[in-house]
Amino acid sequence: MPVPFDDRGLAYGDGLFETVLVRDGRPSLWDYHLARLRRGCAALGIDAPDEAVLATLPAAAESGLSVLKVIVTRGSGGRGYQAPADPEPRLRWQLSAFEPRRERWQHGVAVRHCRLRLAEQPALAGIKHLNRLENVLARREWTSPDIAEGLLTSIGGHLIEATSMNVFWRRNGRWQTPCLERCGVAGTLRAALLERLGIDEVEFEPTALETVEGLCLGNSVQGLWPVTALESPSGEPLERWRISDDLRFFQQQAHALLGYPAGI
């Protein structure tokens, strides 16, 4: 069903989305996706969709792996930026066949720092709202297929995330991930790992990556990619890491949550 021209999600990014890995009609990390969607709706003041309706969507997938994308907007109406007094939220969804990048699980990836800096807006921190122009601009910074992702730093100087994945590293024997109280997307795989493993949420300057024992990226669709090489925004080599047994164990914990193979 087409989206009307006056839809506020189209006009202003006034809405939220979720991307869910679906295996044989069963969604992965579903409770975490619903919880983040509820948080996002509360933050934007949008009525959350009926969870009974949402629960029917993954079952429409064919056998094998799919990705369900759910978009919720405030709907139409209002005057300019002023929201309508009685909005009628709009729900749209799509299922697409999916195949993960298995070679990246096994061999790891190269990443680079991005020049773009993320704005800090605590009112939007953590939620997956539709206005992702910062990520779009950052992703335009490289075209080489040898670079899998770009690391994003906030305007305040803290490492936050990759353009479409969360960041994890091992330092002094502890797994850590960026604190996302000012900006960034709190991924559902990240949430599940925080709940199950002893991961510290910290403020971390990107230059401190030279002190870490291992680095990886993860999200609830692609799983977990080890990082083997880090470059500057201009492509100069900065750091290299081997894929340690500790990182493989961490990867296995992440993949168990998604139904991906434990042995790589």
Rank of each mutant, 00 (worst) to 15 (best):
L130K: 04
E99I: 14
R92S: 15
L118K: 05
F98C: 05
P84G: 09
V70A: 11
V111K: 02
V70E: 08
R112I: 03
K69C: 11
L95N: 00
T56E: 12
L124A: 08
R132A: 08
A83C: 08
E103T: 15
A83Q: 13
G126H: 06
R79N: 12
L118E: 06
C114I: 03
A55S: 09
L118S: 04
L118H: 05
A125K: 11
H129V: 02
H107E: 12
A119C: 14
A61G: 06
L116S: 08
L133N: 13
K128Q: 05
R90K: 11
R79K: 12
E103Y: 13
N131F: 11
D86H: 15
Q106F: 08
G78Y: 05
A125E: 11
R102T: 13
L54G: 01
V70C: 10
G64T: 03
A59C: 09
F98P: 06
L118T: 07
P58K: 02
A52T: 07
E134V: 04
R101P: 02
R79Y: 00
L133V: 14
P87V: 04
E120W: 10
Q121G: 04
G126F: 03
A52L: 00
E51G: 03
G108Y: 10
V72M: 05
V53S: 02
L57D: 00
R90E: 03
A83S: 13
R132G: 04
W105I: 01
G126P: 06
N131Q: 14
P89Y: 00
A55H: 01
P122Q: 03
P89K: 00
R104Q: 14
E51Q: 07
V70H: 04
V67A: 14
R102K: 13
P89F: 08
T56L: 09
E103L: 15
R104M: 12
G80L: 09
L65E: 04
G77Q: 01
R102L: 09
P87L: 02
K128Y: 00
L54H: 02
H113W: 11
C114T: 10
R104I: 00
L91M: 07
L118W: 09
A119Q: 14
L65R: 02
K69H: 11
L65W: 03
P84I: 10
V72T: 06
S76R: 15
R117D: 06
P89W: 07
R92L: 12
R74S: 04
H113E: 03
G77T: 03
F98I: 00
A85I: 12
E120H: 13
A110E: 12
R112P: 01
A60G: 13
K69R: 15
V53H: 07
P87F: 06
Q94M: 11
C114L: 14
R132L: 11
P84Y: 09
L57R: 02
E62P: 01
P87E: 03
P100A: 04
A59N: 01
K69F: 10
R117N: 05
E88M: 12
P89A: 05
V53Y: 06
N131L: 11
R79P: 00
A125N: 11
L68F: 04
I127K: 00
S66I: 06
T56R: 14
